[in-house]
Design a protein around this nucleic acid. Structure first.
Length: 164
DNA sequence: GCCAACGTTGGC
DNA sequence: GCCAACGTTGGC
Protein backbone atom coordinates (compact mmCIF):
# COMPACT_ATOMS: atom_id res chain seq x y z
CA UNK A 1 0.00 0.00 0.00
CA UNK A 2 1.43 3.32 -1.04
CA UNK A 3 0.03 6.30 0.77
CA UNK A 4 -1.60 8.60 -1.76
CA UNK A 5 -0.41 12.16 -1.63
CA UNK A 6 -3.09 14.30 -0.06
CA UNK A 7 -4.93 16.37 -2.63
CA UNK A 8 -7.28 19.26 -2.21
CA UNK A 9 -10.42 20.08 -4.14
CA UNK A 10 -13.10 22.63 -4.70
CA UNK A 11 -16.61 21.59 -5.64
CA UNK A 12 -19.29 23.96 -6.84
CA UNK A 13 -22.95 23.78 -6.03
CA UNK A 14 -25.76 26.22 -6.56
CA UNK A 15 -27.18 26.73 -3.08
CA UNK A 16 -30.72 26.91 -4.51
CA UNK A 17 -30.16 23.35 -5.65
CA UNK A 18 -27.95 21.99 -2.88
CA UNK A 19 -26.33 24.15 -0.23
CA UNK A 20 -23.85 23.48 2.52
CA UNK A 21 -26.81 23.54 4.92
CA UNK A 22 -28.31 20.68 2.94
CA UNK A 23 -25.01 18.84 3.21
CA UNK A 24 -24.85 19.48 6.93
CA UNK A 25 -28.39 18.13 7.33
CA UNK A 26 -27.65 15.07 5.20
CA UNK A 27 -24.18 14.62 6.73
CA UNK A 28 -23.16 12.94 3.47
CA UNK A 29 -24.32 13.02 -0.12
CA UNK A 30 -23.70 11.50 -3.53
CA UNK A 31 -22.15 14.15 -5.75
CA UNK A 32 -24.41 13.20 -8.62
CA UNK A 33 -25.32 14.90 -11.85
CA UNK A 34 -21.83 15.82 -13.00
CA UNK A 35 -21.80 15.53 -16.80
CA UNK A 36 -18.42 16.88 -17.68
CA UNK A 37 -15.57 14.54 -18.53
CA UNK A 38 -12.84 16.56 -16.89
CA UNK A 39 -14.77 16.75 -13.62
CA UNK A 40 -15.59 13.06 -13.84
CA UNK A 41 -11.98 12.14 -14.42
CA UNK A 42 -10.93 14.04 -11.32
CA UNK A 43 -13.52 12.25 -9.21
CA UNK A 44 -12.80 8.87 -10.78
CA UNK A 45 -9.03 8.96 -11.00
CA UNK A 46 -7.62 11.52 -8.63
CA UNK A 47 -9.75 11.74 -5.52
CA UNK A 48 -9.00 9.71 -2.42
CA UNK A 49 -11.13 9.14 0.63
CA UNK A 50 -10.29 11.84 3.16
CA UNK A 51 -9.27 14.52 0.66
CA UNK A 52 -10.43 17.94 1.87
CA UNK A 53 -12.98 19.75 -0.30
CA UNK A 54 -13.84 23.43 -0.37
CA UNK A 55 -17.61 23.73 -0.78
CA UNK A 56 -18.35 26.63 -3.13
CA UNK A 57 -21.71 28.31 -3.65
CA UNK A 58 -22.01 29.32 -7.29
CA UNK A 59 -24.74 31.43 -8.87
CA UNK A 60 -25.51 32.79 -5.44
CA UNK A 61 -25.65 35.96 -3.41
CA UNK A 62 -23.02 36.12 -2.31
CA UNK A 63 -20.89 33.67 -4.22
CA UNK A 64 -18.63 32.15 -1.62
CA UNK A 65 -16.70 29.26 -0.21
CA UNK A 66 -19.28 28.24 2.36
CA UNK A 67 -17.39 25.59 4.23
CA UNK A 68 -15.34 22.46 4.28
CA UNK A 69 -16.24 18.98 3.13
CA UNK A 70 -14.37 15.76 2.55
CA UNK A 71 -14.28 13.00 -0.03
CA UNK A 72 -16.12 10.15 1.68
CA UNK A 73 -15.97 7.28 -0.80
CA UNK A 74 -14.14 5.90 -3.77
CA UNK A 75 -15.78 6.65 -7.08
CA UNK A 76 -18.70 4.57 -8.27
CA UNK A 77 -21.30 4.82 -11.05
CA UNK A 78 -23.69 7.77 -10.85
CA UNK A 79 -27.15 6.20 -10.54
CA UNK A 80 -28.87 9.36 -11.79
CA UNK A 81 -27.47 8.65 -15.26
CA UNK A 82 -29.72 5.57 -15.48
CA UNK A 83 -32.87 7.19 -14.12
CA UNK A 84 -35.17 8.24 -16.96
CA UNK A 85 -36.94 10.70 -14.72
CA UNK A 86 -33.77 12.38 -13.56
CA UNK A 87 -32.74 15.71 -14.99
CA UNK A 88 -29.29 14.28 -15.63
CA UNK A 89 -30.47 11.05 -17.26
CA UNK A 90 -28.06 9.97 -19.95
CA UNK A 91 -29.48 7.34 -22.32
CA UNK A 92 -26.03 6.81 -23.81
CA UNK A 93 -24.56 5.62 -20.54
CA UNK A 94 -24.52 1.82 -20.43
CA UNK A 95 -25.06 0.38 -16.94
CA UNK A 96 -22.59 -2.37 -17.86
CA UNK A 97 -19.98 0.24 -18.66
CA UNK A 98 -21.07 3.46 -16.96
CA UNK A 99 -19.98 6.77 -18.38
CA UNK A 100 -20.55 8.85 -15.27
CA UNK A 101 -18.88 8.30 -11.94
CA UNK A 102 -19.22 10.12 -8.65
CA UNK A 103 -17.93 10.15 -5.10
CA UNK A 104 -19.67 10.66 -1.79
CA UNK A 105 -18.95 13.94 -0.06
CA UNK A 106 -19.41 14.54 3.64
CA UNK A 107 -19.83 17.71 5.65
CA UNK A 108 -16.87 18.75 7.78
CA UNK A 109 -17.51 22.37 8.75
CA UNK A 110 -19.62 25.31 7.75
CA UNK A 111 -17.55 28.47 7.85
CA UNK A 112 -18.72 30.84 10.55
CA UNK A 113 -18.29 33.63 8.02
CA UNK A 114 -18.47 32.54 4.39
CA UNK A 115 -15.51 33.54 2.25
CA UNK A 116 -17.02 35.61 -0.50
CA UNK A 117 -15.63 35.59 -4.00
CA UNK A 118 -14.85 39.23 -3.47
CA UNK A 119 -12.65 38.39 -0.47
CA UNK A 120 -10.93 35.63 -2.40
CA UNK A 121 -10.29 37.88 -5.37
CA UNK A 122 -8.71 40.46 -3.09
CA UNK A 123 -6.15 37.96 -1.81
CA UNK A 124 -2.87 38.13 -3.76
CA UNK A 125 -1.88 34.61 -2.70
CA UNK A 126 -4.92 33.29 -4.56
CA UNK A 127 -4.27 35.16 -7.78
CA UNK A 128 -3.69 31.93 -9.70
CA UNK A 129 -6.57 29.97 -8.21
CA UNK A 130 -8.55 28.21 -10.93
CA UNK A 131 -11.85 29.32 -9.42
CA UNK A 132 -10.99 32.95 -9.95
CA UNK A 133 -9.86 32.62 -13.50
CA UNK A 134 -12.10 34.19 -16.07
CA UNK A 135 -14.42 31.73 -17.73
CA UNK A 136 -13.47 28.90 -15.40
CA UNK A 137 -16.53 26.68 -15.41
CA UNK A 138 -15.19 23.38 -14.15
CA UNK A 139 -17.42 22.31 -11.26
CA UNK A 140 -14.83 20.05 -9.68
CA UNK A 141 -11.44 21.68 -9.44
CA UNK A 142 -8.06 20.85 -7.97
CA UNK A 143 -6.77 23.27 -5.35
CA UNK A 144 -3.09 23.44 -4.45
CA UNK A 145 -1.98 22.75 -0.88
CA UNK A 146 -0.79 26.34 -0.67
CA UNK A 147 -4.12 27.71 -1.83
CA UNK A 148 -5.95 25.49 0.59
CA UNK A 149 -3.83 26.77 3.46
CA UNK A 150 -4.51 30.36 2.49
CA UNK A 151 -8.25 29.71 2.31
CA UNK A 152 -8.18 28.13 5.76
CA UNK A 153 -6.33 31.12 7.17
CA UNK A 154 -8.79 33.51 5.54
CA UNK A 155 -11.70 31.55 6.98
CA UNK A 156 -10.20 31.75 10.43
CA UNK A 157 -9.60 35.47 10.06
CA UNK A 158 -13.12 36.10 8.72
CA UNK A 159 -14.66 34.15 11.60
CA UNK A 160 -12.68 36.17 14.09
CA UNK A 161 -13.73 39.41 12.46
CA UNK A 162 -17.38 38.34 12.43
CA UNK A 163 -17.28 37.23 16.05
CA UNK A 164 -15.46 40.28 17.35
C1' DG B 1 -30.80 39.59 -18.32
C1' DC B 2 -26.52 39.55 -20.78
C1' DC B 3 -22.86 37.36 -22.57
C1' DA B 4 -18.03 35.26 -22.52
C1' DA B 5 -16.06 30.97 -22.27
C1' DC B 6 -16.07 26.59 -23.35
C1' DG B 7 -17.86 21.73 -24.19
C1' DT B 8 -20.48 18.87 -27.34
C1' DT B 9 -22.65 17.57 -31.58
C1' DG B 10 -23.07 16.62 -36.20
C1' DG B 11 -22.50 17.74 -41.14
C1' DC B 12 -19.11 17.51 -44.39
C1' DG C 1 -10.53 15.80 -38.62
C1' DC C 2 -12.47 20.39 -39.10
C1' DC C 3 -15.53 23.67 -37.66
C1' DA C 4 -20.07 25.95 -37.28
C1' DA C 5 -24.02 25.69 -34.53
C1' DC C 6 -25.79 25.05 -30.34
C1' DG C 7 -26.25 24.41 -25.28
C1' DT C 8 -24.64 25.27 -20.64
C1' DT C 9 -22.19 27.45 -16.92
C1' DG C 10 -21.82 31.01 -14.11
C1' DG C 11 -19.83 35.74 -13.29
C1' DC C 12 -21.20 40.30 -13.92
Amino acid sequence: MTAARRRYWLMKSEPDVYSIDDLKRDRKTMWDGVRNYQARNLMRDDMSVGDPVLFYHSNAKPMCIAGLAEVASKSYPDPSAFDRKDKHYDPKSDPENPTWMLVDVKHVATFEAPLTREMLAAEPALADMMLLRRGSRLSVQPVTAAEFKVVQALAKRAAKAAGA
